[in-house]
Every structure is written in C-alpha cells, then in structure tokens.
C-alpha cells in the first residue's frame, strides 16, 4: 500500500457497488433525523415538565405497610379529603388489593389539591387523565402529588399498574365539584363521595 497517510476522515476509499460517499451521506441524513427526533422529544419533555408540572413525583416518606389500619395518617377514619388551614385540600387514599379507599374521592375545583397515597401490599398506580396526576403507589412509601383541577366531573379509571388477578376490578374514582359545592369541613372532618 503505497498510499499516502491522510487523515481517516478525509481518506478516499475505493468505490464499491455503492459509492462510499453515497453511503456516508445516507448515514448522515439518518443520524440527523434521529438526533432531530431525540431533540424534539427532549424539548416536549422539558416544556411539559415546566408548564404542566408533568414529571415523576419524587417523594420519599416511608411508612410500615402492615399496620396502616391500626392508626396514624392512613387509618380508615382519616382517609378522604381534608381541608387545610390555608384553604387547600389534602386527599388521603390507601390502595390495596383490589380497591382504592375511599372508593370515590371528592375534591373541589380551582383549589390546590394534594393527594397522599400509600399501599398495603403491592405496587398500584394512580393516574387521572388530562391532569398532571400520575404516580405509582408503592408499599412502604407515601406518594404525594399536587394538582389543581380546572374542570368539574368524575374521573374514573382502573388501577394503572398490574397488581394481581383482581387488577381489572380495581377502580379509582375522583369527583371534582365546583368549589362552592364542596362541603365545609372542620379541621378534624373528612369527606368522600363513597357510598
């Protein structure tokens, strides 16, 4: 090989069936398309993340999943929606095989809402479409999601994470009512729309 040593990027390779330059051009075009798609997806993620607070909720609070019903924040009597002193509301739910408790959560529209959820057994999922509420409910941890509902109505959806053979019968219901129709609650009262 009596070829002069040139930089590999500039070196001319012998022509094959398809000219090397043609292959390189095609590859470059595909790389550009791929990078463009990646960039677009990144932009979508960042823009929705900032404007709609759509991002994985990260809240690490631990709790013993076996004794939830014996007392504390997730005792049966403390579940449901509570009014906070600042006018916002906090909705506490427990997900277990195979139900969300309370089976129907009542929240006011145009009011800051904080969901706090935990599981007694396996991983469940809680997602309300067209809102930023989407979280896994992991046993041993408390999931927390904050949102404000702008439209009234009933959100109805099955558990969002496969949780066992009764998974398809596990229905979460959240009813959003106009703020003035939401019951007046004292600090130690809880409400829900469960039957």
């Amino acid at each position: 090989m009596a070829e002069t040593e040139t930089h590999p990027l500039r070196r001319r390779l012998p022509d094959g069936i398809m000219p090397e330059e043609e292959i390189t051009r095609t590859e470059n075009r595909w790389v550009a398309v791929m990078l463009g798609m990646l960039g677009l997806m990144m932009v979508v993620i960042v823009v929705t993340g900032i404007t709609d607070s759509l991002h994985p909720p990260s809240n690490v609070e631990t709790i013993d999943p076996t004794t939830l019903h014996l007392g504390g924040e997730f005792a049966e009597s403390n579940l449901g929606t509570a009014r906070e002193p600042d006018g916002s509301v906090t909705a506490r739910l427990v997900a277990d095989q195979y139900a969300f408790v309370p089976s129907c959560t009542l929240v006011p529209a145009d009011t800051p809402v904080k969901f706090r959820l935990t599981s007694t057994d396996v991983i469940h999922g809680f997602l309300l479409p067209v809102t930023n509420v989407n979280t896994m409910v992991v046993p041993g941890y408390i999931a927390e999601v904050r949102t404000t509902f702008t439209r009234t109505g009933v959100y109805s959806m099955p558990c969002n994470e496969f949780c066992g053979s009764g998974h398809h019968g596990m229905l979460a219901k959240v009813e959003v009512v106009p703020a003035e129709q939401f019951p007046t609650l004292t600090a130690d009262e809880r409400t829900s729309c469960a039957k």
Partner: peptide, 29 residues
C-alpha cells in the same frame, strides 16, 4: 435533593384527625 428523592419539604400531617376508628386489632406483622 427532590430529584434524587431526598425530600425535606414534605412531612406527615400534623393537623387534627377524626376520632380513630380501627376495623380490627390484628395486623399481618
């Protein structure tokens, strides 16, 4: 810290709770 899941900005609720009503004394501990 929040991105890593280490949060100090949330805490268990300290607000008053309704009278405790437990369905059973048994927990599967």
């Amino acid at each position: 810290c929040r991105g890593l899941g280490i949060t100090s900005d949330t805490a268990p609720a300290t607000q008053p709770q309704p009278a405790l009503n437990t369905p059973t004394r048994i927990a599967w501990t």
